[in-house]
């Protein structure tokens, strides 16, 4: 494996395909690195708070290494293309918000129409491929100001993610994280068993 794979390759390999949303995430992640003077996270030095679960978040996970599993990716289901990236070492955080209408335009509209279709004709496959190329260039060559607003914000870094032990569920017998176990009069249950 060669070192220094460019951010865009990291994002595409993680996400699996190229799409405008992913590229917006690439721009946001690269900007955050530059603004905060950081690279890729190793062990929760960085934290990302994302307000959407759309494609861009995969770029943030891949490029910044703020990941769901590591506990330094916090998802707030607001349906907004807003990403707050904080650095523990730099004691600094930047809130990056996609501008309303940043992805408007006839080509973006047509791309969305095609992306929403279950089946594409050969012509539509070619058309979609052409559009991705056009949109790719637009997103990656646009000034950051055209696409996003950003500001530095006060941010209190949370403690590093804890590792909890598991206990046995009295219902299914499977292990459940201690902090997530439901204690009842009938025993200790995992969440699905507790609601049955």
């Amino acid at each position: 494996m060669c070192k220094n794979m460019p951010p865009i390759e990291l994002a595409i390999q993680f996400h699996g395909h190229i799409c405008p949303g992913l590229l917006m995430g690439v721009r946001a992640a690269e900007f955050a690195q530059k603004y905060l003077g950081v690279g890729q996270d190793y062990d929760e030095e960085l934290l990302a708070v994302v307000e959407t679960d759309a494609c861009a978040v995969d770029a943030i996970q891949a490029i910044l290494s703020c990941t769901f599993g590591k506990g330094n990716l916090i998802f707030k289901d607001y349906g907004k293309h807003v990403y707050t990236i904080a650095s523990r070492e730099q004691n600094k955080a930047v809130r990056i918000a996609q501008k309303y209408g940043a992805l408007n335009g006839s080509e973006f509209e047509r791309y969305r129409q095609l992306a929403a279709k279950d089946h594409l004709t050969d012509d539509e496959i070619s058309e979609k491929e052409q559009l991705i190329g056009v949109l790719f260039e637009k997103i990656m060559t646009a000034s950051f100001e055209e696409l996003f607003d950003w500001r530095e914000i006060p941010f209190e870094m949370p403690e590093r993610a804890r590792i909890h032990g598991s206990i046995r569920c009295d219902g299914c017998g499977e292990g459940v994280m201690e902090a997530r176990a439901v204690h009842t009069d009938k025993g200790i249950f995992c969440s699905p068993c507790a609601t049955e």
């Binding site: 006839s106 080509e107 047509r110 070619s126 058309e127 052409q130």
Partner: peptide, 19 residues
């Protein structure tokens, strides 16, 4: 547009790009 693309839009708001 570029690469022999032609973008079209009709009065119903439908859009299409063809080579």
């Amino acid at each position: 547009g570029e690469d022999n693309n032609i973008f079209m839009e009709n009065i119903f708001g439908e859009r299409r790009v063809v080579q």
